[in-house]
Amino acid sequence: MTDPLVPDRLDLVPDALLVSRAADGDTAAFETLARRYGPLMRACARRLTGSYADADDVVQEALVQAWKQLDTLREPGAVKSWLLRLTGSRSIDFLRRRRNHAGFGDIDEVSGKGDVGSPEAGPEAKAVQGSSIESLKAALARLPEEQRRCWVLKEFNGQSYDQIAQTLNISTASVRGRLARARITLVREMEEWR
């Protein structure tokens, strides 16, 4: 084959064209989009839900919603941020369902199940590791859940204040406040370990 676009022709195609095809009913184009942005969706969902198993459920839900609503996407080239927005919404829905199901508290969410960081680890222990990432992880895990969600939706999912407000069903002013408090706490904790 001398065709430069074969064999993985769709992998080389820009987002907007894949969106057009998928909106026309082409599942192969949609699958290409899913493979292209699935890892990012998974990373964001994992930060919000605390585990890959839950993240994968969320990604699947977000993809089903994306397929259904593709024709509502005004700017086909903006599909990446749109997918991340859907991932954020489905993650928050998932956390709400889990809370209702669990009946009390969100212990799992706060401690973040292992890889999100251990709240018990003291500043000294973390400082040894030296990395700002490690201290950020630990500080994130200690953040109140509602602040953490705001921060992740902003910094990971790339959502605007208005979009976060919609996702969390709170006012834009509350988003501003929670995000600022999250950042202040994170900055303070990270500076302590410098």
């Binding site: 899913a34 493979r35 292209r36 942005y37 699935g38 890892p39 990012l40 998974r42 990373a43 994992r46 930060r47 890959y52 700002s132 990432i133 950020l136 992880k137 921060w151 910094e155 990971f156 950042r183 994170l186 900055v187 990270m190």
Partner: peptide, 19 residues
């Protein structure tokens, strides 16, 4: 903090695997 956040996202993305 923003820079550390981007770095964490990069790490998480790499850990999340490929499509």
């Amino acid at each position: 903090l923003t820079a550390a956040g981007s770095e964490l996202l990069s790490n998480d993305l790499a850990a999340a695997g490929s499509g």
